[in-house]
Design a protein around this nucleic acid. Structure first.
Lengths: 196, 196
DNA sequence: CAAGTTTTTGACCGTATGGTCAATAACGTA
DNA sequence: TACGTTATTGACCATACGGTCAAAAACTTG
């Protein structure tokens, strides 16, 4: 019996993500969000509660999406685990050198979070662990395949890949081109075969 | 004959750096800066021109300082180039897991810059190239020593190290602890010996 | 000690921010 | 078709922002 909404929450969150990815949380104004989503301020407020809460929603969705994407890339059949990681890293190099002004919401949250344990930090930490988990799974398969040195530490290598991709993202934003970023990705992969 | 200033520009820039490192450019208010530097608004404005200009000054100084620090670490006598890089990376791991809320101004500029070629981007790009240059120099020495594989690409490896350290910084902020970050640093170093 | 120059001080300003309110519109149901 | 419920709309608000102004202060030099 209530009046139904004219919008889909997922659409709104998606539009908001775009705004946040380009401007960040602090620099994005409510007006930016209103314009991007098409909703009125009050509707936004009713549905989500405010800028910060909306960012949190966007962040969660971004995290799920990112995990899903990496998971799919690393789980693709018909290639060895190592080949999949290689393909994934090369794709990241291309994506990050595309020259757009977007920054992943995870990185934005990391940089803009103010406290040690505010909601932003919490979600972000969880996201990083989740992402590392995906890498770890793939690396574990590689190890079982015998494609990794015996003494390789799957757990820290997983975190290592998260670090490298975050760094590549930043470098891409700094204007480092596709060629260099690809070379960096290949360098990064060498860690998998390196001796101590 | 003019009235002399009561402050040293370098002191002010240094205090401002602290504020920017903790809050970022957008989120730092003029009041924060006034409080931290001890100057009045107008004095700040007279001497620097405004928030953005002050950030730029801080950024430049931060960049010089960072380059100097890395340069010194990598140039230390009495150790092979590779040992120096190793020591440097391990020190970074400790620094980034210290748990403070600071983020290097370079990273902040990277994330907060709005255009492709505004002053922030320009300074930041220059800083990254400068930093990569320092790594490259050390790596070149390593190669001459025969400590690097023949086919190692010193240039891209240098950028690779910049990327890894940026990533480690972000992870540190995400709460990744010293142990893990140290393991990541060691993983990263393996790229130097890895086969293709 | 007076003149000249610049810094400092603190009040002030326009704007734009995130957020709120009250009135109205739109829908499902009875 | 009338009712109840919620969404929407657009005006509204207090605040805090970055920045500016004009007057007073402080130092050096002549």
């Amino acid at each position: 019996m209530p009046r139904p909404r004219k919008f889909l929450e997922s659409d709104v969150v998606s539009s908001a993500s775009e705004v946040f990815a380009v401007h960040g949380l602090a620099a994005a104004t409510l007006d930016d969000l209103v314009r991007a989503t098409g909703l009125g301020k009050q509707s936004l407020y009713n549905a989500f509660g405010g800028k910060r809460e909306l960012f949190l929603r966007a962040l969660s969705e971004d995290r799920e999406e990112a995990t899903r994407a990496v998971s799919e890339a690393l789980g693709h059949e018909g290639a060895s685990p190592l080949e999949r990681i290689r393909g994934h890293m090369l794709r990241m190099a291309i994506e990050f050198s595309s020259g757009d002004r977007r920054v992943s919401l995870t990185t934005r949250a990391l940089v803009e979070s103010t406290g040690e344990d505010d909601a932003l930090s919490t979600v972000t930490k969880a996201g990083i662990e989740q992402l590392a988990g995906v890498y770890a799974q793939c690396l574990e398969h590689a190890r079982e395949n015998g494609d990794l040195p015996e003494d390789a530490n799957v757990q820290s290598l997983a975190v290592y890949f998260v670090a490298v991709t975050r760094g590549m993202e930043l470098l891409g934003r700094a204007g480092v081109g596709r060629g260099v970023l690809t070379a960096v990705a290949l360098d990064a992969l060498r860690a998998l075969h390196g001796r101590r």
